[in-house]
Amino acid sequence: MKPKRTSARRTGRRVSRIKRRTSRPVRQVAAIPIVNHPNPYVSVIIPAMNEAKTIAGVISGARGVHPRCEVIVVVNGSADQTAEIALSLGAHVISYELPLGHDAGRSVGAEAAKGEVLLFTDGDLVIPATGLRPYVTAISGGADIALNDYSGPVRKLSPHPVVLSKHALNILLGRPDLKGCSMTAVPHAISRRALEILGSESLSRPPLAHAQAVLSGLRVVAAHKVHVGKLNAVRRKEDGTDPLQQLITADHMEAVSLLLEHRGNRAGFSDGTRRREMVR
């Protein structure tokens, strides 16, 4: 039975002025160094393009994922102070004057990474360390690819084509349990073993890397949910088309093609009891 509330509690008055203890003790966090660890366990890869407003927040979140951590910022096609800010925060900055291309920064970052775990995020997503640590933990626990457990909005019957493509690819890969989780979305982490099998180049086309990971028998898990939908606005051209959407869905079709090459015309699904020779 619930104890009766006292009148003192009900009116909100405190009997004594002693501070109440919270149920959870506050953890004492060691001061986070602002330099990269010489022998890092985790490499955080942050592609950035004109993200001066957010890059400091992103780096400070990234610093907290592990005591042995390096932050790699791949600045490309930026006209603002992104690179300078990142440098002042002790990040390893790789700069390109021109844009590298959609998701190409991931390959460049992976190439430079020294850690056992590679954590991918983005220059415009400010995520606190608590939101990033679960991915590292999952890889430490034996997973090869730890994905963002976020499937996108699925409340309508016909979702956004990218959301649909991610779901369909996982179904065809025989991993419907992954729903709409994909290496397309950040944050996600991969093991060094996964990087060696996939190759850093393939990370520029995440749906293909995703399919390749499942096909190679790597352990792919949905580790933790960061609701990135709200942080990522859709941009359209005047004619209503979204080139990025077309690029990502085309990559998914390419991934399906890869799958069919690997597993055969039916992607490894049985033909049941069909006797096709009955019809000629």
């Binding site: 393009m49 004109n50 490309n76 096609g77 021109l98 844009p99 590298l100 291309g101 959609h102 998701d103 190409a104 520029s204 941009r235 051209k237 080139p243 990025l244 690029l247 085309a250 079709m253 390419e254």
Partner: peptide, 26 residues
């Protein structure tokens, strides 16, 4: 499918560069 030569890796890379540039020129 007719992918407009996008399976050629150089064309592919250039296209992705254009998309990235377009998206960030807000």
């Amino acid at each position: 499918r007719d992918d407009g030569g996008l399976r050629n890796s150089e064309t592919q890379r250039e296209y992705r560069r254009q998309v990235a540039a377009w998206r960030n020129r807000i």
